[in-house]
Design a protein around this nucleic acid. Structure first.
Lengths: 242, 242
DNA sequence: CAGGTTTGTGCCTGCCAGACAAAAACCTGG
DNA sequence: CCAGGTTTTTGTCTGGCAGGCACAAACCTG
């Protein structure tokens, strides 16, 4: 416990190489498809876990950071331009998580708006997050972690913009929220909440409402296309801001 | 973009070793000291950045995960049993963040309750987060990131337990909140909010209030010593839970 | 016991979100 | 063209929560 200023040499290291480890970037790419929140999975072609479903991603390159790496690797699965949002999730480091070699993985959360249907390779597909197939490594728990992050952020940020197309009716939007949150969301309340928060605004246009008539729906858009935090839920505000 | 099932081999790698990188765990350890939110910094004894202040931490060992690693390394700075909370913050991976070699760093947020004064080595000290000294690498921005995380979580979780001693008066507690949040927090409101949320409860004891008389203050304690999320701010609740 | 100090309680206001009902706007079929 | 059905929009009501403030309670000192 005495500080001799040379603490770093105390760290166990078998040899110079033993301190090095493989590092990969993974992505939980989520999209609302047919009213369900789906995740992009890739069928592994190489061992370990050959043939099993896994999150897209792979080794970090020598001259890129993790964000650039996952964008590059996702480009092999979906058009990167389709990603409306990307944020770091967490880093998994359990020594046994990859049975073959020590591998650290930094997971990202990526979102694709609902109106896009990206071209994906044959070995890649979308799977509803309720009712996931068997998934390799610890990737299933990473998917749940990503879904949890999305669900919380839908409450206190404007991430909704990343799930919705540029213009949408309130019925459509409440459908996206319902799919992502896993429970009903009343369009009328959602409208008032998001309007008051200044997250969405009317475009002025409207569309005839569906098959069986009904009042035409007004079109809305998100005012920002970057994530912003709603302060409405910053309790314990500074005084004078009740 | 065609899926040939062998995507991983596309990843640039100079040679087998180039894909490997050094990985370290860092910790932003925060504590309220003398009414100020302080961070634990360590004066580096080795290059690069010899003699500069930096976050405590170091290389990941071969058989430990990041959480175990940062706990082990913090044991050289503060008694690990003093840590009331520890959570992963984020992973930094910019290629140039360490001028000497490619190093990834996963930062953790650690908290020490206010009543403890851990023994720290000579090369280690507490610094107010307002008015930080010059700090090596990207560690200054990591400190700000940790402080931001603490501030948000004080609003929608019970992390307060990790800043406060086992028993405290409301005046003391509002002092901790004020120091952490950076603005005044009225003890009377804090009391009502935390009581309603069920985060704190009265112990039944009380202490005579300070030097110049005054009504004796009731003692409170946090009901839980693990982090729990307040649902009071889950907007967009499931229906039937207004 | 009077005055000062600190803590605790009660009340008020304002804001926000969920539920519900009524109005508006449109379509289809007779 | 009108009646009935459908969907969206608007408005109202209610309940909960948080911040501000005033007053009461409890204690100390001189």
């Amino acid at each position: 416990m005495a500080g001799n200023g040379r603490d770093r040499v105390d760290i166990p290291e078998v040899n110079g190489q033993a301190m090095l480890s493989a590092h990969e970037a993974l992505a939980v790419v989520l999209q609302i498809r047919a009213g369900e929140l789906c995740v992009l999975l890739w069928r592994r072609a190489l061992p370990p876990c050959e043939g099993e479903w896994a999150l897209p991603g792979g080794r970090l390159g020598t001259e890129e950071d993790l964000g650039a790496s996952i964008r590059r690797q996702l480009a092999q699965k979906v058009d990167v331009r389709d990603l409306s949002h990307l944020e770091q999730l967490e880093t998994r480091s359990e020594p046994g998580r990859d049975p073959q070699r020590r591998t650290l993985a930094t997971a990202y959360l990526g979102l694709v708006p609902a109106h896009i249907d990206p071209v994906v390779p044959d070995d890649t597909g979308w799977h509803p997050t309720v009712d996931l197939p068997a998934i390799a490594f610890d990737h299933a728990s990473i998917v749940r972690s990503g879904r949890r992050r999305l669900r919380s952020k839908l409450s206190y940020t404007n991430v909704g913009f990343a799930l919705a197309p540029p213009e949408f009716t309130m019925s459509e939007l409440s459908g996206y929220y319902r799919a992502a949150l896993g429970h009903d969301v009343a369009a009328t309340n959602l409208r008032r909440v998001l309007l008051r928060r200044g997250q969405i605004e009317e475009t002025g246009h409207s569309v005839p409402s569906g098959r069986s008539g009904g009042r035409p729906a007004a079109l809305f858009r998100f005012r920002a296309r970057e994530m912003e935090v709603t302060d409405a839920f910053a309790v314990l505000r500074p005084p004078g801001q009740a």
